[in-house]
């Protein structure tokens, strides 16, 4: 009997190959490495299977003070930046929607600048802003205003930690991330027929009532999407954070998130097995949080098929 292959597969093969080679294989490999004592790229060690890395990670969570700082930083950073990205994006999208088009366009471009700027350049701006010496932008402003008497090392001064380091991380990433929500919500508001706004206005609704009763309820889908998307990217982002830690703008541990920790363990202390295990745990946590977010935001209810006849 001949097996008949759907010819559609032929067309999918190039894409499937790419996904297989660059996504599925590394994923399996990564999980596998998590169960090996791989260190310093000594591939001979990859033969033995052990749960040691996971046990060690679990132990570290409660007994390694530095890793504890990383976990707390990750939680605070993700929660606050997510709030900024979703609520800030929503607020910006709304403001831009209600604004004159003449004003709206330059504002949108302005808010997209952090995203368009190369990561290093953008991070450098913030580095100089929070720089410890007198020449740091923030220090120089506050000194001149007489708020502080001597320059402060904002991201590393033990007297200010951990909050200042967290604020720096949240600000740096928040300004980049907020434009994503802004673009999504702005276009979502524009896809609502304008007549609905006019109708509400004629029926006596104020702008705030229109926002609450007509606009926001119709972008629920988009809120879910932006929340879940941003949650997952915040858990894994580390480019900006890496540079800030590397340049000493923030404290080594109070300024590190789990994703950066994975990177550092793999490429600085060369404990690839442990890094892979940490990465695996992070992905599992991300998946769980994503599902929880969908559940909380009642994703399923929104997927009901319309029943009307045309």
């Amino acid at each position: 009997m001949r097996v008949r292959l759907n010819p559609a597969f032929l067309f999918l093969i190039p894409a499937l190959t790419l996904i297989l080679v660059f996504y599925v294989v590394p994923l399996i490999l990564s999980v596998y490495i998590g169960f090996t004592p791989l260190q310093r790229w000594n591939l001979n060690r990859m033969g033995s299977i052990t749960a040691y890395n996971f046990e060690r990670l679990f132990y570290m969570m409660f007994h390694d003070p530095d890793f504890g700082k990383v976990i707390r930083t990750t939680i605070v950073f993700t929660a606050f930046t997510l709030a900024i990205n979703v609520l800030g994006g929503l607020g910006l999208g709304l403001a831009l929607y209600l604004m004159d088009e003449v004003l709206s366009l330059p504002y949108r471009i302005l808010w997209l600048l952090p995203r368009m700027t190369p990561v290093a350049v953008y991070s450098l701006l913030w580095y100089y802003f929070f720089l410890g010496g007198e020449e740091g932008t923030l220090n120089s402003i506050l000194l001149r205003l007489g708020v502080i008497n001597e320059p402060l090392s904002w991201g590393t001064d033990p007297r200010l930690l951990p909050e200042t380091a967290w604020v720096i991380l949240i600000l740096v990433n928040g300004f980049v991330g907020v434009s994503f929500g802004m673009i999504v919500f702005y276009s979502a508001f524009h896809s609502i027929p304008r007549e609905q706004v006019v109708a509400a206005r004629v029926d006596g609704a104020t702008t705030s009532q229109i926002v609450r009763h007509v606009l926001i309820p119709q972008v629920r889908w988009h809120i879910v999407y932006v929340t879940v998307w941003q949650l997952l990217s915040l858990l894994t982002t580390f480019a900006h954070i890496f540079l800030l830690v590397e340049w000493g703008a923030v404290h080594r541990w109070w300024g590190s998130t789990w994703a950066l920790y994975v990177f550092n363990v793999a490429f600085k202390t060369y404990e690839q097995g442990l890094a892979a295990a940490a990465a695996t745990v992070l992905v599992i946590i991300g998946a769980i949080l994503g599902l929880v977010a969908l559940r909380i935001l009642k994703f399923k209810e929104m997927m009901v098929e319309p029943k009307g006849e045309i």
Binding site: P193, V198, P217, Q218
Partner: peptide
């Protein structure tokens, strides 16, 4: 403003609130 005029308005696309 519209709300102080007490007018009822019907649109071509009905403009019902879908939610």
């Amino acid at each position: 403003p519209p709300r102080e005029r007490n007018v009822g308005l019907v649109f071509q696309n009905y403009a019902l609130y879908p939610h």
